[in-house]
Amino acid sequence: MQSALPQQVKIVEVGPRDGLQNEKETIPAEIKIALVDRLTAAGFANIEAASFVSPKWVPQMATSAEVMAGIARKPGVIYSVLTPNMKGFEAALAAGADEVVIFSSASEAFAQKNINCSIAESIARFAEVAAAAKLNNIRLRGSISCAFGCPYQGEVAPASVADVVKRLRDLGCDEIDIADTIGVGTALQVQHVMQLVAQDFPIASLSGHFHDTYGQALANIYASLEVGISIFHSSVAGLGGCPYAKGATGNVATEDVLFLLQGLGIQTGINLDAVVDAGQFISTHLGRKAVSRAGNALAAKRLG
């Protein structure tokens, strides 16, 4: 185990895509654009802004081309989009995406239930997208869901995660996300998996994507920091529920992660106050309180 924590961490803000995609009420494109612009101004180096998937499956992402066309881009910021197939990739290319995200699962049961194919088949489907990304000099990120547990099969073997990491590496992924889709991971388990997969892929390009369903996300981020992980995903205002656990929270809130990192003296280049503002902005639009504890506490403190 590393004794020194990373001095700098990259936060990938996933609220505009992963956070908003499950919202039932249609969110106007101008609200999504305003949210991305606020996050850009707050200093994020990487924002997951949209998803080019079939509107039939994810209606909330139907305005993705409009969002990508409307955002005020800042040089050096990576604006990522999720692309499930070549049609999605072509839309991402036309929209000027800086990074495309392909996705698989460490759970065979989850792959079958969600994408109606095996893990091996899902990776094979993405070979064309990966090759096209390389050809067009677009960053390629791979995301592995259910890396610490699955709603259908229960436990997921660390070796299964390592196997998918190798497959995504061989497709040419620049970065790979290890995602706790249902939030069941715990600190020692997370460290074990991260150390195992770091044998097959550079640790500097591995990221932790933790959900807070069981309240373990911050503990899992700290545990990951201890073994050298320096990229994390989070969602402003804690946007995004967990569809596999009724009433549970989903993505860890960006404000909470930033508060933790600030206390550890770890640099992110992100203005926490600006993120709190962005979180309150989108929560007001959605007509509910932000899920972020730090965000709500800091917002309340300002009001005195």
Rank of each mutant, 00 (worst) to 15 (best):
H211T: 06
A179M: 08
G185C: 07
I176C: 07
V193A: 01
E66N: 11
D180H: 05
A29E: 02
A131V: 10
C173T: 04
L272T: 14
I102R: 03
T213Y: 03
L93N: 08
F210C: 00
I176G: 02
F103E: 09
Q267V: 14
E175Q: 13
G76S: 11
N271K: 14
S207Y: 02
M194E: 05
F89C: 00
H285L: 10
I144E: 03
F201P: 08
F103C: 13
I123T: 04
V184K: 04
D273C: 05
T40P: 04
D256Y: 01
R139V: 05
N296Y: 02
T268H: 08
E30P: 11
K74P: 06
T186L: 13
W57K: 09
E23M: 06
T186W: 10
A219S: 14
D18C: 11
A91Q: 15
L206Y: 06
C150N: 07
V236H: 02
G228Y: 02
S107F: 09
A162W: 06
L20F: 09
L140E: 00
V156G: 02
S230P: 00
L135S: 14
D180V: 05
E108R: 13
V129Y: 01
L260K: 06
V53A: 10
S51C: 13
F201D: 07
V193R: 03
